[in-house]
Design a protein around this nucleic acid. Structure first.
Lengths: 349, 349
DNA sequence: GAAATAAATGAAATGGTTTTCATTCAACTT
DNA sequence: AAGTTGAATGAAAACCATTTCATTTATTTC
């Protein structure tokens, strides 16, 4: 039914081996015969049978992506970056969202292994130790793109969550805020949230503010969870002057709740987010946040994964992407008027 | 290196064929021998070599997804729905974002064909006629999930864009608005935008309002384009009392611009969107919009595609998913106070 | 209990590549 | 002119499953 190499060989009057060599531009084919073959390929509109190739070579030009909650704006952009760079480098993508469920992650891992993926990108944060050991067992090139992995054998690319959270808290403290509450991610999130929390603690200590774990409210990175977290915060700590949500959606949700309660942002309470998704520019008030580029993170992940695939390993396997503090309208200095212009404090590494 | 069926056969003391039969639970194997085989599979942790299977059977359990701008919230949810339902039905996903570029679409189509995908879901709207003919040539089961396709051979699942847009305009007119401006999608969008426009025209006619093409401003579904479209609208039609953006992000962008100009929403101008993404509940004012579920749309697409794959074809291949008009805070009746409660007008089919 | 039928199993062909190894052929040495 | 070398090509094995067809074994029928 389909055109095979055999057909091409026959039409070109050469052997299978020669056709294969031409197609993989192995240099030991006479130019003249190569042309014959190419003409035949053209004429028959020959398309390689990928499964046969994979079966023989054990390499698929396929990269697996396992993520969790990839519909979130930041991660959707990350996926887009992965996708664009993968295409650029000749890889196709096989994609699965685990929703943070370990079982699904294992399941996907299995399927992808069966499909002989050349490498895998993990954007999952739960249970990551279990998953990690499985991936290591599988012996497939892997890049984590969701936080810092201390295991020296594992590559990761991420924003420096500790430094970024530190910057944000320092900014708030310097603006005079001392009563700050925090909305973190789910308890199961072992990476980003934990790291940001470390940055928070560090900055508070340096500003001589006592760290109270009660002021850390758990969210799940949705608008809704930001909304209800704000409610809890207001109940428990009516004297709060600033709220730091660990992503922009939760910040927007929090702002909504506060406004419903007749609270002015930033006059009464400053609210800040994390990620710097597009939305933050268009809400009112526009959101003060830490900006990082998901797209860039995606690019970088593939770049590194590609290197591991091609060169076997990599020298510098812990990569931080740049971040910057973007000050917009949702914050002000305590006892001062809010400023309306966008200030960017660059903290690239 | 890897464990193959041969190893399993040897350990179980049976032939290759028998092992294969057990694994595909063909019923003509004695229970006793099946158990032996299963035990061997277990013991060796045998994993099938997918490429070999595909090579032999020409079916891959792989579904291709080609989208454009999938980072947009509505589409990210659509992808998630596709992903969830595909997994449920035993398919893996191979995914590409064409950004609306025809060349990329062709390229992906080629790659996917080489990978012997069982079917494909298209979420692209540009140039769709060219793409359509190629897909038809390829003779692969296909479902369009981005609008209504009139070709009777092609399956599609989509919200009823005409009816939904009609509902929205009718709602605005009944609230007394007659000076309405519109922000549509890119000119290249041959599906959703065109259909919504038809709904608009229909509703305007029925309310005896003249349709002026000058009042249709082109956007590209981003916040930014909504923002600048609002600027254009305000310049050209300062007397406008309502703006209908063809998605929620553009509506939010528009609101931002209007507010910056000191215009109150909805007191001075009502603004409505389309899609009903989560965000709309948390902006201020919360957004009046047409709500459809991207996730559900995704599920449905896979459901239909699966049917085509399994049964060869399908009787009813034009499917509409439900939509509803959700009235929130960004609209009011002309010369009346705004209401604060959420009203849902159900228009399911 | 023999013959006919049905069920379970195995041998071998098949799918379409890549790659090793052997062969041919031309070119180059001496 | 014979021998050597090197480049270009071809034949065949290998990759790992599925599936047809043939064969063996078990079951039924008279």
């Amino acid at each position: 039914m389909d055109v095979t190499m055999k057909d091409v060989a026959k039409l070109a009057g050469v052997s299978l081996s020669t056709v294969s060599r031409v197609l993989n531009d192995s240099s030991l084919v006479r130019e003249e015969t190569a042309k014959k073959v190419e003409k035949a390929v053209e004429k028959l509109d020959y398309q390689i049978n990928d499964s046969a190739r994979i079966l023989r070579t054990n390499t698929s030009n396929l990269i697996g992506v396992i993520g969790a909650g990839m519909e979130r704006p930041f991660l959707a952009n990350l996926l887009k970056g992965i996708e664009a760079e993968a295409r650029e480098r000749g890889f196709a993508l096989i994609y699965g969202d685990s929703d943070g469920e370990f079982e699904k992650e294992q399941n996907y891992l299995n399927i992808m292994k069966q499909k002989k993926i050349d490498g895998i990108i993990l954007i999952t944060t739960n249970y990551y130790n279990d998953l990690l050991s499985i991936v290591k067992n599988y012996n497939i090139p892997v890049v984590f793109a969701s936080g810092y992995i201390s295991d020296p054998e594992i590559s990761c690319v991420t924003v420096d969550n500790v430094a970024a959270a530190y910057d944000m808290v320092e900014f708030l403290c310097q603006a005079g805020h001392r009563d700050i509450a925090f909305i973190k991610g789910p308890d199961l999130d072992m990476l980003a949230s934990q790291e940001r929390l470390r940055g928070v603690k560090l900055a508070l200590r340096l500003s001589n503010i006592k760290y109270e774990s009660a002021r850390i409210i758990e969210g799940d990175f949705t608008y809704e969870s930001g909304y209800s977290a704000a409610q809890k915060i207001l109940n428990k700590f009516p004297d709060v002057t600033a709220i730091f949500a660990f992503n922009d959606e939760m910040a927007v949700g929090a702002i909504r709740y506060l406004k419903e309660q007749g609270i002015s942002i930033p006059e009464d309470i400053s609210v800040v987010g994390f990620d710097g998704i597009d939305l933050g520019k268009y809400t009112s008030p526009a959101l003060t946040t830490i900006k990082q580029s998901g797209y860039h993170l995606g690019l970088k992940s593939i770049e590194i994964l590609n290197k591991i695939i091609k060169e076997g390993k990599i020298e510098d396997n812990k990569v931080f992407i740049p971040h910057e503090l973007v000050v917009r309208e949702s914050t002000n200095k305590l006892n001062e008027l809010t400023t309306n212009q966008e200030v960017i404090i660059n903290n690239n590494i």
